[in-house]
Design a protein around this nucleic acid. Structure first.
Lengths: 342, 342
DNA sequence: TTTTAGCACTCTCCTTATGGGATTGCTAAA
DNA sequence: TTTAGCAATCCCATAAGGAGAGTGCTAAAA
């Protein structure tokens, strides 16, 4: 374990580097922060910290910057406390409690997160493993075209247009509607999915309808909308100094357009069930090794859970981002409680 | 008007520059394309073409590159013909005729376009000015939470969750449902919107329901989903040589994350009602002055229209992109006919 | 009159050299 | 154990030089 002086030096080194983006030298530490030790002393301590893997020297005659391990120690043990801003609270509330349909709301949340922090905001679609089916509805468009609409207990709606191979009139549709709803209302989506796939042939229903229902359920259950995530803030993050060179930008954009990568990244937030930080290599995505990721979940009991996250340079103000992400997660959950009850 | 020799020289200059990305010199023109004139002669002609604004010299001792006017002349008068690839046709069909809900389909189309061309694919949400209302549905979630679902004649579905100020039971909901559908079924969205806003107070209905309906209709009518566009292909376009410097990339990304700019750009495709090319400054967005935009519409009669487009460097293979965009537009329209009839 | 050869001139870009500046590690003294 | 002093190291901005490519112009050839 590090002694007090080493902790202090590490802490100030991390803080200064986050602010200045310049390797921190012993001279700056001694002079700017008036620590009471001479540069030479500090130099010795920093050499020790480097040996133990907390600091890195970009080249021989440069100051030092924190390693992943240095950031990790800082975040785990040296943080002074979270910094929650009034203005953030106001904005988060005003977006989340405005009336919007689901998808639009989540998209706005992603935009808001990047807007307020200049980092990337990511929102994972709600995962519905424990939700129940509320209603199946059919809307007859014309001739053989029908819209099938499924509503879940969590208020998520998913629809699809299908073209039938033979015309179905409103009476017949009504029979199907009543029958399906009687059978499936308030059943878990999971179960409905299994019943439909197993007994596929035994339903005396137009095959297209059964197939489409299965399709809709699968999407609701396993992927939100195609591994759905909303990502926002590319244009914001490029202003940071770590993304000045074109190749880093390219690899970053490659990753961020790959929805699968992001959704599985956010998905892992479920396991931790709370505020999580991953720093650099810990993220386990080489292209993001200059970044940190802060995630949390939003939820209502067990029936609906999703997660949100921010991706930014490792050089981020953790005090602020941690507080902010927590705020957004909590506010989203509150909104769920308000609408769907406890 | 240009004489034959100037046309030939301009044509080959444009072609060579599109291929090589290098300023084209008189020597290359004479030697590589065996035109039968000496470099000196070609040099004179190129000087003329520059004077007339078709070519530009990046600096004194460089070859020449096409100006916007040069590209425009090339596209209008010098194109050999469209180039439609078998593989493109296969891929476009397989994506567009797979069964997907609306939004997902359009998103996939944008991805497809960028995938096939390495340029940016943009898809504007369907504009519904002439669509009619098909059905209004309520799903009772629990206590005071209700989902309102509106389906249009074009098969577009939009929903919203609301929290009521007092409980409403299923019987009461049924009365509202029947009454609203009786009154509004098959009426134009436009009209329903006006009736609701004008007679707001006269409906003996919970105020929240009326307000939410108005909200949904406004979104359907005026903005798709929030000026909705799908954009795809950022990571692809960065491989092109014109986006090697960081500032160009930044300004490009700024524009592409600004949905309003893009949707109004695509919206203008409606006025032209067909395949449109804008080159460089013609686009009228300074940040895109190194780009060309090719757009077209997809439609079914007058009831549903949207547009699609590609954004790429001016140095694009117009023969191919024009054919491709036309293909995607036509195939999308076909799908509409197939589902919704004529 | 039109086309072409020849040549000086211009500009870019790459490589190399140079010097200032910052910071370190080490040694020896406090 | 801490500190002052100093040589050594590396980065980086700037300048200098030279190769290469292509043009414009002039004068001769077709």
């Amino acid at each position: 374990m590090l002694d007090e002086r080493k902790k202090t030096i590490l802490k100030i080194t991390v803080k200064d580097y986050i602010e200045s983006a310049q390797p921190v030298s012993s001279r700056v530490l001694a002079k700017k922060y008036l620590l009471g030790w001479s540069p030479a002393t500090i130099r010795n301590e920093m050499a020790d910290l480097e040996e133990e893997g907390y600091l890195i020297q970009p080249h021989t005659s440069a100051g030092r910057i924190p390693s992943d391990r240095g950031y990790r120690f800082y975040v785990d043990f040296l943080l002074d406390g979270y910094e929650l801003y009034e203005e953030d609270i106001r904005m988060v509330n005003s977006i989340i409690f405005s009336s919007l349909e689901w998808e639009n709301l989540l998209k706005k949340v992603a935009e808001l997160m990047s807007e307020r922090t200049t980092f990337i905001g990511v929102v994972l679609f709600p995962q519905l493993k424990n939700a129940t089916l509320k209603k199946i509805e059919f809307v007859d468009l014309k001739e053989e075209a029908v819209v099938i609409i499924v509503t879940t207990s969590t208020g998520i709606v998913k629809e699809r247009i299908i073209k039938l191979s033979r015309p179905i009139n409103e009476e017949e549709l009504q029979i199907i509607r009543v029958r399906l709803n009687k059978e499936f209302e308030n059943k878990e989506l999971q179960d409905v999915y299994w019943i439909l796939t197993k007994d596929k042939k035994n339903f005396i229903l137009p095959q297209e309808i059964v197939d489409t229902l299965i399709d809709i359920l699968r999407e609701l259950l396993y992927t939100g909308r195609e591994e759905g995530v909303f990502v926002s803030g590319l244009s914001k993050i490029l202003q940071h100094l770590e993304f000045q060179n074109i190749n880093k930008v390219k690899t970053l954009i490659d990753v961020l357009e790959e929805e699968k990568t992001l959704s599985s990244l956010l998905f892992s937030a479920f396991l931790n069930k709370g505020l999580t930080i991953l720093i650099g290599q810990e993220i386990n995505i080489p292209e993001l090794s200059d970044c940190s990721v802060v995630t949390t979940i939003y939820s209502l009991g067990g029936s609906i859970t999703g997660s949100i996250g921010m991706i930014g340079p490792k050089r981020m103000k953790y005090e602020r981002v941690l507080a902010f992400v927590e705020l957004v997660g909590k506010t989203l959950s509150e909104k769920l409680v308000q609408i769907l009850g406890e």
